[in-house]
Amino acid sequence: MQNLIEIKGVRHAFATAAGPLPVLDGLDLAVAEGGFTAVVGPSGCGKSTLTRLVAGLLIPDEGEVWLHGAPVKGPRATVGMAFQNPVLLEWRSIIDNVMLPLEIVKNSLSKSEQRDRARYLLELVGLAGFEDKRPSELSGGMRQRASLCRALVHKPEVLILDEPFGALDAFTREDLWQIMHDVKEQEPFTGVLITHDLREAIYLADHVVVLSGRPARTQYVLELTPGPRSIDTLYTPEAAQMLKDLHTQIRIAQGRKEGDAA
């Protein structure tokens, strides 16, 4: 399988008042077409910087970012993004929010085809009947689902999720994990998920990448069997072992040894 996203030896530093602050140092990442990679690591280790690299919003100081066999030189319309903050436009209805990318990305869809596409996605995530509501009338989980539809409406090759479920309660989050699996079956995409939640990582992804503390490099990669799962898979001994391994790796990334007090 060809790698859709290929990141090789990326270094990047932010200019601050106190001098350059290195955030990424020797980052490697490869995501196969149709793959779903979760990225975990200590907070502030540069995970969000990674999403900006893939989206072409940031050009690294050193190293290469390849998307579909071409180096990334700037933003590309083939990327969809969703953040922890759903950032829906309050003055638009839900369906108009979902259709926003179609107003910017060149496409051959007529206005009514655009509406149909948005309607179809909203139905897929369980928001049928909420098309004409304002974002302020929806719950946090529903807003996040609408944000997901907006990220997918222009059929992006790559879906970047930056802690999209971080602000939701545990049960809503589990619902959305299930929805992610359903969506991926209907609307195949290549995904990069940034998360703090190890259970979320092993439930959704087929690869889990652990980044080291700042400046971040690739520290550990866990491979899982791809394909849809049910929530029960999280309670198997294999899942417990994976969580334990990842946890150990995070501790190492934080600079603590196993057994140290938190």
């Binding site: 933003p75 590309r76 990327v79 903050n85 926003l100 910017i104 907006r150």
Partner: peptide, 21 residues
Amino acid sequence: EPEYRDILRSLGASKTTIFWK
């Protein structure tokens, strides 16, 4: 919020588009 800008910028929108939209 920078996320608002990123949503549109990642799609290749110009500064003018971001301002109006």
